[in-house]
Simulated assay, not measured.
Amino acid sequence: MRSIAAVLFVVFAAVFVAGAASARFVDPSGTDVPAGTHPPQIGRFAVLVYSMNRNTKLKYVSVSDSDVHAHQGGVRYRMVVTAADASGATAQYQVLVWGIPGTYQWMLLEFKKIS
């Protein structure tokens, strides 16, 4: 019995770790993108967090402008994100995200509609 429980635990742990690792922001290799900068991925994160927090149905469309700076041990991303609502109408939002690339430490600091 103990050996079956141990095998099940190892399999569960391997599946859990593999699933968790895929959620991290990972730097692409072989590209000219600076390490830790992924505006489209950060934009999707911002739209998802905002939508969950405000109980809205926004869908990420694109990032049209982004600026990246080192800030307090992490990276600060300021960008303009275009998102579509449930009816398909698009709008632009000023977004500010702070995070540490390669970790799960990410925060949405600002998500304001641009008039």
Rank of each mutant, 00 (worst) to 15 (best):
A5D: 12
A6P: 13
V7L: 15
L8A: 15
F9R: 15
F9E: 14
V11P: 15
V15C: 04
A20T: 13
A23Y: 10
R24K: 10
R24W: 12
V26P: 14
S29R: 14
S29I: 06
G30Q: 05
V33Q: 13
P34D: 10
G36Q: 08
H38T: 08
P40G: 11
G43W: 06
R44N: 10
V47H: 01
V49N: 03
Y50S: 01
S51A: 06
R54V: 02
N55L: 11
K57G: 14
L58T: 03
V61A: 02
V61P: 02
S62M: 04
V63H: 05
S64Y: 05
S64I: 04
S64L: 09
D65Y: 12
D65C: 07
V68S: 14
V68C: 14
H69P: 12
A70S: 09
H71P: 11
G73I: 02
G74C: 00
G74D: 01
V75H: 09
R78I: 11
V80K: 02
V81D: 03
V81M: 00
D85P: 00
A86W: 00
A86R: 10
G88P: 07
A91I: 07
Y93G: 04
V95D: 05
L96D: 07
V97N: 01
V97E: 01
G99H: 03
I100H: 03
P101V: 04
G102D: 05
G102V: 03
T103H: 13
T103Q: 13
T103M: 08
Y104M: 15
L108A: 03
L109M: 08
F111Q: 03
F111K: 03
I114W: 02
S115I: 00
